[in-house]
């Protein structure tokens, strides 16, 4: 029972990363009908930008001799990095995807893979292959409830993830731009004719997705403080699985499926020998998809699918 509760805590943290990254995949898909395969690497770029901002802020505080509390640095880092990384997303959309908007979908999907490789190797060329150690901005405080161990970082990660998801939900449901996004996911051919500019909507979607990926990157750095240029690949793939599992283009679905994926992985490693973790976890997901081929919240598209 203790182990069960402990693993729920573990899975909540691990699932947060999948959920935040899966949201980016799903949002881009709902607008452009393509999966941005560079998204995992945008997450990596976000983590590195976060590293730069955090060390910069710490150095600035030290130079000015101000006793700036760690949590303030952390919050500022998240906000600034989300802002900066969203421009990375806008840039990728402008340079990588817009010229290929009318091209076959396969070309656009390949573009994502190539941009991903460019980001990884670009980072390698710029910073070298050395691992970076993400600064521990807040002291770890461990709470023991019964025999379940929870750290303040875990609580922070889950809380920030959930509030970002809630914020996104509000944006999509309550604002005009959100409405345009929802409309576009219903019919990408008719909506541009109604005066919604795809050239504004697409960069906005990339910006939001990349911002969320940056937040995920910093939270990840907080929990697993070793950064390397290839950290986004595996996580990106798995979050992509979550996006499909949630239903292509479904925001709520992506978030839920992200957490579900975290739970399945953690519990598979707990119940079965850990050697078989991914084998079992992804067999389960394959099984789910067999029975729900459109994922949890996806609908069969009435219009012709472009992927």
């Amino acid at each position: 029972m203790d182990l069960f509760l402990q693993n729920i805590v573990n899975a909540l943290q691990w699932g947060s990363f999948y959920a935040l990254i899966a949201l980016g995949y799903s949002m881009v898909y709902s607008i452009l009908m393509l999966f941005n395969f560079a998204h995992g690497d945008i997450f990596m770029v976000g983590a590195y930008i976060g590293f730069g901002i955090a060390t910069g802020l710490l150095a600035l505080a030290a130079m000015a001799g101000l006793p700036v509390p760690g949590w303030l640095v952390l919050v500022l880092t998240i906000i600034i990095s989300m802002f900066l990384t969203s421009f990375v997303g806008i840039f990728i959309e402008r340079v990588g995807y817009r010229p290929l908007r009318e091209a076959p979908r396969a070309s656009a999907a390949i573009t994502g893979l190539m941009i991903g490789i460019i980001l990884e190797t670009g980072n390698l060329a710029l910073l070298g292959a050395r691992r970076l150690s993400f600064p521990s901005l807040i002291d770890t405080v461990t709470f023991q409830i019964g025999s379940v161990y929870v750290t303040n970082k875990k609580i922070f990660i889950v809380a920030v993830s959930l509030s970002l998801m809630f914020g996104l939900h509000l944006f999509i449901q309550k604002t005009k731009w959100g409405m345009a996004m929802r409309a576009m996911s219903y019919d990408f051919q008719a909506v541009p004719l109604m005066g919604v500019s795809i050239n504004k909507l697409a960069p906005l979607t990339f910006a939001i997705g990349s911002g969320l990926a940056a937040a995920a990157g910093i939270l990840y750095g907080l929990a697993y403080p070793v950064l390397d240029p290839y950290m986004g690949i595996l996580l990106g793939w798995k979050a992509f699985v979550a996006a499909i599992l949630g239903g292509r283009g479904s925001i709520l679905g992506a978030a839920l499926a992200g957490f579900l994926l975290g739970f399945i992985e953690i519990f598979a490693a707990w119940i079965f020998p850990s050697t078989f973790r991914d084998l079992i976890a992804y067999s389960i997901i394959l099984l789910i998809l067999t029975f729900r081929p459109h994922g949890f919240f996806g609908q069969a598209h009435s219009t012709q699918l472009r992927l």
């Binding site: 693993n7 595996l234 490693a269």
Partner: peptide
Amino acid sequence: KDADFSSQLSK
């Protein structure tokens, strides 16, 4: 390439 070992470590 795994980064999260929480399940194994809890065990």
